[in-house]
Design a protein around this nucleic acid. Sequence first.
DNA 1: ACAATGTATGCATGTTTCCGAATATAGAAT
DNA 2: ATTCTATATTCGGAAACATGCATACATTGT
Lengths: 146, 146
Amino acid sequence: MTTVDGYELQARLLRALSHPVRLRILNLLVKREACVCHLTAVLRRPQPYVSQQLAVLRDEHLVAGRREGTIVYYRISDHHVAAWLSHGRQLAADGEDSSAMFPPVPEGALPDCPCPACQAEHSGGHHQSQSGDAAAGQPVRARDQS
Amino acid sequence: MTTVDGYELQARLLRALSHPVRLRILNLLVKREACVCHLTAVLRRPQPYVSQQLAVLRDEHLVAGRREGTIVYYRISDHHVAAWLSHGRQLAADGEDSSAMFPPVPEGALPDCPCPACQAEHSGGHHQSQSGDAAAGQPVRARDQS
DNA sequence: ACAATGTATGCATGTTTCCGAATATAGAAT
DNA sequence: ATTCTATATTCGGAAACATGCATACATTGT
């Protein structure tokens, strides 16, 4: 039995969370799942950069990806953790105006986002996949880890 | 007005917490305040090392120090954060046996701890300060920060 | 083959971690 | 007062790790 140090585990989890962009990503995904291109548009960061941060969150099982065609949709893995994080946000704000510190994200579709979901939603009609709604995408594999 | 990014603040807080030794320190201090020598004995780490980790926690106002003579007693600054952390521990354990992952700390006085509180308590009688219980020590000053 | 979307790799730069030594600080002894 | 001891903090540096970018690679669909 390998003596697992719980503090080490918790520290790893916290470290994965201790980054402003990753916190923003999680906050975006709480409301609904989103594709990488969507996150790229909202965060205004280069796509490889966003993908990298998603990989960090994935490695700690904080988010999970679902592939549909060429597009990968990410979502929160564990909403308990999300709720816990949201609680922590209030503690971090600590009396300040938290609605000013954590401005709400533009909801819904973005003109900047090239994914078909956003494009369709943005032009008025609701989304209808052109390749047929597959039942469920394959989970995105995690990087090999020691 | 400087545009304060709440995510940055929360990330800093999380980063200060994302270290196994610092998590252990906080967990120790939840039950009661403790002097640096006590923490040093429990954690079995060199004293400067413990002091350094305490400084990180101090800079984020997670703990506060109170000096009594040559001894500095540290305690949790914000028990809301402590409760939140404890909640996070359950999430990190996630189904595993959390009492095995976070073994309870030896309570009370330690033979290894040289501070008079521990020595007195350890030799049977309850603690009676030899220099008279001063009302309250001076708070330990934080490092100058930019 | 080609284009579109995501992921991984390599690297320069900066930060964290940990240690040993030096420094401060408080009290006691001479 | 001066020195001595005990406690705690800070400093300087080496190794490990994180960050952000540019580029290369992989996968899917046309």
